[in-house]
Design a protein around this nucleic acid. Sequence first.
DNA 1: TTATTCTGCGCAACCGATTGCATATTTAGC
DNA 2: GCTAAATATGCAATCGGTTGCGCAGAATAA
Lengths: 351, 351
Amino acid sequence: MASNNMGSKPKVTIHHIAEKLNITASTVSRALNDNPRISEVTKKAVLKAAKQLNYQPNNIAAALRNGRSYIIGIIVPTADRAFFASVVRGIEEIANKLNYKVIICQSYDNYEKEVQTIDALLSARVDGIIASIGKNTENFDHYKRPQEKGIPLVLFDRTTDALEVSQVVIDDYLGAYKVVEHLIQQGCRRIAHFTSPKKVSVFKERLRGYTDALRDHDIPYDEELVIKSNLQLEDGRESMQKLLELDLKPDAVFSASDYGAMGAMQVLKEKKIRIPEEIALAGFGNEPFTSFSDPALTTVDQFSLTMGRITAELFFEHFKAGDKKLVPQKTVLKPELIIRGSSLRNPSKKK
Amino acid sequence: MASNNMGSKPKVTIHHIAEKLNITASTVSRALNDNPRISEVTKKAVLKAAKQLNYQPNNIAAALRNGRSYIIGIIVPTADRAFFASVVRGIEEIANKLNYKVIICQSYDNYEKEVQTIDALLSARVDGIIASIGKNTENFDHYKRPQEKGIPLVLFDRTTDALEVSQVVIDDYLGAYKVVEHLIQQGCRRIAHFTSPKKVSVFKERLRGYTDALRDHDIPYDEELVIKSNLQLEDGRESMQKLLELDLKPDAVFSASDYGAMGAMQVLKEKKIRIPEEIALAGFGNEPFTSFSDPALTTVDQFSLTMGRITAELFFEHFKAGDKKLVPQKTVLKPELIIRGSSLRNPSKKK
DNA sequence: TTATTCTGCGCAACCGATTGCATATTTAGC
DNA sequence: GCTAAATATGCAATCGGTTGCGCAGAATAA
């Protein structure tokens, strides 16, 4: 009855189990792994002894021997934005089912940090990396390193075609196109757009969707309606104010981020400009708050949870393929336009 | 020039570096760790060779040898709620500075999953665990295991006093008290409260704050004004509807969660009941969306980022203390009342 | 009865880095 | 010029499982 775990670390290993049962560690190891070459009797005895001794397997030792850690690394710009948090959740869900754990790393959109993180994950001997590239990253060499080391890499959302890797993105172009088309259908003709100066593909694609939709509906592109900023709440406010100073004011604003749209909404409400009658509003991302504003914000849903799951699944495909490298694959998810009060000029339609 | 990393795993180890330089692995190891017993000349040579060979340290091997993984495990109910995401971010920030990585695990408020997670983290040989207890957990034995194994554990937010562990919480009681006091000052007398039936301390504390504030201001406690639910958006809607069916309707609602409050707000707006004139509203948590609603929601900020940082710092204190176990310590953060339009009946005050 | 195939388990090397304890070579001390 | 103290590096064990190979004894086949 007197257990001798007095200090702090009992450190029970398979050798202790072996000793207790007068067998070898090999047998214990095989028994614990349910190896068919071990008799049922022995297996039961081992399991029992393991429980009695309060044995805790040491994955580190196993990982060293097998070269497999059962951990995958995730790199996101920030973990506290709803979109990334959901993607991470989706990834974790799938990973867990396969007995994998995930390490979360945040790059904070910082290039150096991103490079270091790759290195750290490689040293931690993760079995693979799933990442979303930081806003300020323009050189992608560090993303080549995992592949050189033979560990799979999959990118999501903020990706690049400069790398030969599989990626999961939503069709930002299509999402933006749908938004603008919808605004046009609502009767808007001077549609402004908030975009980012950064070379991030998602914003470039949204801008392209915007311009193409205009063109396809014979609406001239007006440069002064396209405002570049960091797309945060405060930026949205400033951008909206700039627009209101124009001689020819817009009758709609499509922001490439929900935060920017919220900023615009605040300004419009302060100035008692009616939404959507005078100026319609739409964002992108379907952040949770968009459904709570008044009017609720029209936006584009990115299926973040789904994106996480699909990314993880794609990752494991590559992982299982192992050496016989799969051809990089680009999965494009269809976004969904969420029409809400901020852009719906004909509420009578709502029966 | 001809590198031979043709297959997939070059597997460069310190032995290869040693071989190349005609020294031993011991020396390489010491050189890489900047051990003073190694000459500068050798160190430089080692570093150079390491770079040439594209050497990647294997932390797993080091972890096995030193019994330190430089990884800490975090258990949260869900990673995609703003509050937890921010706490995680705060923890990660501090951990990273000390060269630690974090593994995120989600319990999904599921007891079994929580137990399994503890076990998985223990097997992964994390250097410590930081956790927030799931809603449905009523037996805490699994949280005793890390301590038995000598690895530190710190709890945050959803904690329990049934365990001898350090914890970081906000003063839910005080936060609730302040909210109710504020509502009373705004002239409200029939203040309803949305709470949870679960045995989670945070909700019990908020309820206590509510009742005490009423008592201290000589307002009778009315049981029919306290509605129990899961506190999500839909629950908030239902609860609000119940309240509106009362003979004596409330003139304020204090929800223990922002989501519940938003649900209530939706119902009130649909019924054209003016907020805050007829019914004032307040939530708890300062979720990002609370500032975007119209009217913006009065709520309580929990300083989630700060909580994460403090939790991590407390954790590392314990970690450094090591065997000489520190006395469990409870850090209570002061929450901040954020007064917004949903409860401010005297806007003239806003100069 | 002898040859062959299973079964069940032990032996020992291995994964890659770390470190206490030598050992060899200088440098310093007197 | 000889011993003591540094200095720089090597040796070998260790962390805790895992696994290819081998070897008994039992079961089956011939």
